[in-house]
Design a protein around this nucleic acid. Structure first.
Lengths: 177, 177
DNA sequence: GTCTATAGTGGGATAGAC
DNA sequence: GTCTATCCCACTATAGAC
């Protein structure tokens, strides 16, 4: 079953995304999702095999949204822009998107990924802008690790209150750029 | 109630740590913990107010172990060693400890921290080696973010299978050192 | 400090009628 | 495709006897 083939399924995934974004992962239950859609939880199982399948559809949707933002952040720059400028633009977009959609961000970047249930190439497409901007695989991975580390530690409230994170971001971008 | 004042409580926290390390967070239930200690779950509540208190004791214990490893990694080097050598040593110890104790590592670095239930200064003590090696607050935060990002993405299987992560670690350490 | 018994909650999922 | 009714599971936590 795919979202394209069933408008009702697309509505369900959309409602699940809204529920996740507003309530967090603990709030995404089959009952709550049914409520939001004006149906009983058991009815959802006519559209989706189980909760895992629903989550895989949700992850795919989140990758599309996240990837679009990353691609735009790079598309707005001239191709010959210096590497540091490209990384800085990506970092800004990355951080802003994560802060605007923390639960979606965690869904896309945290925990194991059900790769076998995801459309082919989707994950690679979303990561493409970083790879292109960084100049080498190793640098792309280091840059991604830095950005993810800063982002998730910030979301989790792990830096000391009042820490100057803008400066820490700049330090990392300067070093890795 | 503190671990120092009650040997039985220390045994409970130790058993909880073993259970978490072997079974993961989902395996750490009051029933399973009781089983491991040869007692019924309700009896645990004579030693601990609730599960949150137990988790806070566990987090404190994990900080002590993790912090000890980080301090050792720095203590083994001459004080005048170059910054890059210090960071490399810390990174090696950091990565190795996380891989040896993935669930403990997640406990210490992931999610929100119940700071009000943790001994004063423990968190800062554990982070001290990174702060000292990095040379500035901003660089320390960037270095920690990079190390955490590499580590957690690796633990979660987020890099492509077969990716050369040693080289990515080296790239980050060189850049940030 | 340990036990038994049990309350209370909330979750995923199925059967079968309509 | 939706419903009602229900099952089964697992967990935290309390009450009260010993």
């Amino acid at each position: 079953m795919s979202v394209e083939s069933s408008p009702r399924l697309a509505e369900i995934v959309e409602a699940a995304r809204e529920l996740l974004e507003s309530e967090g992962p603990g709030g995404l239950t089959m009952r709550a999702l049914g409520d939001r859609l004006g149906m009983r939880a058991p009815s959802l199982y006519k559209h989706v095999a189980d909760k895992d399948e629903l989550e895989a559809l949700l992850i795919a949707e989140a990758f599309r949204r996240w990837g679009a933002v990353m691609h735009e952040a790079l598309a707005g720059l001239p191709g010959r822009a210096p590497r540091k400028a490209k990384l800085a633009s990506l970092a800004r977009a990355y951080r802003a998107w994560a802060q605007a959609h923390p639960h979606l961000y965690r869904l896309v970047t945290g925990g194991p990924l059900p790769r076998e249930r995801l459309p082919d190439g989707l994950e690679a497409w979303a990561a493409q802008p970083i790879t292109r901007a960084a100049g080498s695989e190793a640098r792309a991975r280091a840059a991604w690790a830095f950005a993810h580390g800063m982002t998730i530690l910030e979301l989790d409230g792990r830096f000391p209150p009042g820490a100057d994170l803008d400066t820490a971001w700049d330090a990392g971008i300067s070093a890795l750029g």
